[in-house]
Each structure stands twice: as structure tokens, then as C-alpha cells.
């Protein structure tokens, strides 16, 4: 039932504006949940609308199970979309709303009603079948909208920031619901969000988009451990950047020669390391540093370490207590150092 989705060099521009999307290429495997992540205005919603067929790409191809759908109108793509707002049909009851897609495909009223009730059960809204949309809260309405999309057994499920209008508690609950439904149904799902945490929690893979261009497409861990560029690393909260000159398996930096695992191409490079990976110990890749600030976060303490004009952030367990001005030995393990902007 679920399909493989491919975008190949998809571009889109609105009128004469700068392109909203430029040469986006990515593939979503059957049953996979992919998040299109990026700051607002980066083109992720444009990409989703191109997949849905609500926008026509100005260039490039969209394929579902290997067949181009660029000429196929949205109503024949079997790509159900859930929008930022629930957009329930105000003149219909909850059950009619959910059964709408089935009715439009010629299902009889009883059958549509039965399947709608079943779908409402899946989103835990079975008690609300007889209500009208106006009587539901925002979160409840969005659940109904989700049921309305799922009931049609779409080949693609497209979610456009469906929880951004909900408050934090509800958002978490809805995430769990979407994860569960997606695992049960195995729908190929594309999820648009500007919330990095949401993308990490939900997605099998994340496509990070800035200014209409794909920056990185990988599993969530990779964005922390192996970010492609400084911008990607920054977006995922990285703060430690060390410039240097690579020479085989080590990089000459103000902190000394840092050995890498593997090799870096010779030339100017930037290294990054997660704050959690910084150690306070001697050994390989270690150097003397001074604590320049501390902030206690309960489960962790964040320290700013200064050494040779470079500032590094280290996240350490709370039992390590250092004060501003303390001299320490810090170590950057080779296995945790990552070379940014590396050209393969």
C-alpha cells in the first residue's frame, strides 16, 4: 500500500520571486517517516505541496513508485495531507468529515461511516462521532483531521506542521500518536516541521533545508555526530568549532595538534565536537584550559573553557564541580572529533 517517493531536482518559484525550492532531490522509502526540517520560509511547505500536487514544480520530477506524478492532479495522487490548521469541513459532523475521502471515492454512506468510526478509534476520538467540529478543541480537531487523512489509506501521508498550533503537552501527545499510527499503518510519511526536537523524535530520516536547498539528508543521530556543514551543526545546537589545517590524520590547531580518527583532506578545515564528548582528563588531544563560565542545569553542568583564544563548551555530570578561573586539563577524544565541510 505504501509507496516509494522520489524527488529529483525539484525547483519551484512563486512568480518572479527568488526560488522557494532549488533542485531538491531525495527519496523516501516505503513506510519511512521523513521530516522536512528548516526555519520558516525555507521552502519545506512548498516541497510538501509539490508532492501533494497543490503546486506544480517549475522544474524537476516527482515520482511515486517510479512513476512521474507531475501531471497528476492532487485528487488522483492518493497523497492525503494534514495542514497546520485542522480545516475540518464546518458544515459536516465529525463522522462525515472523516468519511469524506471515502465518499468522494464512491463508498456507500454506511461503509464510509463504519470506516470513519474505526479511524476515530485509532486516534482515540471514538466518543466524538456525533459532534460537530465547532464543539471540539484544537487538539481534538487535529486528531479528527488525522483520522480523515488516514481513513483513505493514502499511499503518501503528508503532514504540514500539524501540531504547531497546539500547546506543548498536547504536541507531545500528538507526536506519540503519529508515531504509533505510522508504525501500525506503515504509511510513507513526509512531515514538515521547524522544530528540530520534533524532527529528531519522529523521523527515520531528516531532510534539513535552508533557503530552498537541501543541506543534509540523514538519520537524526548523524545531525549530531556527523553534521555536513557548520550551519547544519549550528542548527542542531553545536557550539564548538575549531579551525585548523589538516595534514593526514591530524589537524594543527591553536589547541595543538589534534589527532583524528581516519584522515582529513589536506588544507583548511573546521572541527566540531559535541559538548558532552569533551573530557576532563589527560592523554591524547589534551590541553590546558581555564574555566570562564559555568551554568548549572540540574542534570548537567555547562562549562565554558578557554584555551589559546578558543572557547569550547563542555557538558559534564553535575558531580564535577568547577569554579570560574579553575585550571583544568581537557581532552577531545579522536573518535568524537568531526571534520566539517569535508569534500568527499
Amino acid at each position: 500500500m505504501s509507496a516509494r517517493l522520489e524527488l529529483e531536482n525539484v525547483s519551484h518559484r512563486y512568480g518572479n520571486d527568488a526560488p522557494a525550492l532549488e533542485k531538491l532531490s531525495l527519496a523516501v522509502e516505503p513506510g519511512e517517516l521523513v521530516a522536512l526540517l528548516g526555519p520558516s520560509g525555507c521552502g519545506k511547505t512548498t516541497a510538501l505541496k509539490v508532492v501533494a500536487g497543490l503546486l506544480r514544480p517549475t522544474a524537476g520530477d516527482v515520482r511515486v513508485d517510479g512513476r512521474s506524478v507531475v501531471g497528476t492532479p492532487p485528487e488522483r495522487r492518493e497523497a492525503a495531507m494534514v495542514f497546520q490548521k485542522p480545516l475540518l469541513f464546518p458544515h459536516m459532523g465529525v463522522t462525515e468529515n472523516v468519511g469524506f475521502g471515502l465518499r468522494m471515492r464512491g463508498a456507500r454512506k454506511e461503509e464510509a461511516g463504519r470506516k470513519a468510526d474505526e479511524a476515530l478509534r485509532r486516534v482515540r476520538m471514538e466518543g466524538f462521532a456525533g459532534r460537530s467540529p465547532g464543539e471540539l478543541s484544537g487538539g481534538q480537531q487535529q486528531r479528527v483531521a488525522l483520522a480523515r487523512a488516514l481513513v483513505t489509506e493514502p499511499r503518501l501521508l503528508l503532514l504540514d506542521e500539524p501540531f504547531s498550533a497546539l500547546d506543548a503537552n498536547l504536541r507531545e501527545e500528538m507526536r506519540d500518536l503519529v508515531l504509533r499510527l505510522q508504525r501500525e499503518g506503515g504509511h510513507t510519511t513526509v512531515f514538515v516541521t521547524h522544530d528540530q526536537e520534533e524532527a529528531v523524535v519522529l523521523a527515520d530520516r531528516i531532510a534539513l533545508i535552508f533557503d530552498g536547498r537541501l543541506q543534509m539528508y540523514d538519520c537524526p543521530e548523524a545531525f549530531y555526530d556527523r553534521p555536513a556543514t557548520r550551519e547544519v551543526a549550528r542548527f542542531f545546537g553545536a557550539t564548538n568549532f575549531i579551525d585548523g589545517r589538516a595534514n593526514d590524520g591530524s589537524v594543527r590547531t591553536p589547541l595543538g595538534d589534534l589527532r583524528l580518527e581516519g584522515t582529513a583532506p589536506p588544507g583548511e578545515v573546521t572541527l566540531t565536537i559535541r559538548p558532552e564528548a569533551v573530557r576532563l582528563e589527560g592523554g591524547e588531544n589534551s590541553f590546558r584550559a581555564r574555566v570562564s563560565s559555568t551554568s548549572y542545569l540540574g542534570t548537567q553542568v555547562h562549562y565554558e573553557l578557554r584555551a589559546a583564544g578558543t572557547t569550547l563548551r563542555a557538558a559534564l555530570p553535575p558531580h564535577v564541580r568547577l569554579a570560574v578561573g579553575d585550571e583544568v586539563t581537557a581532552r577531545l577524544p579522536a573518535t568524537s572529533l568531526w571534520v566539517l565541510d569535508r569534500r568527499f
Binding site: L54, P73, P74, E75, L87, F89, F100, M104, R105, R148
Partner: peptide
């Protein structure tokens, strides 16, 4: 027009969208 987009992705053709969504709304 937003509701019409929803109806489209749910499989409603032009006439169905007018009759079941746009007109009642």
C-alpha cells in the same frame, strides 16, 4: 479555498469540491 485544498488531497474532483465543500461553506 483552504478547505478545497483539503478536499483535493482527499480525492474530491472539481465538481465534488464545489458541491460538497465550496458551495455549502
Amino acid at each position: 479555498s483552504d478547505l478545497e485544498d483539503v478536499a483535493r488531497t482527499l480525492g474530491a474532483g472539481a465538481w465534488q469540491r464545489f458541491w460538497y465543500v465550496v458551495f455549502p461553506v
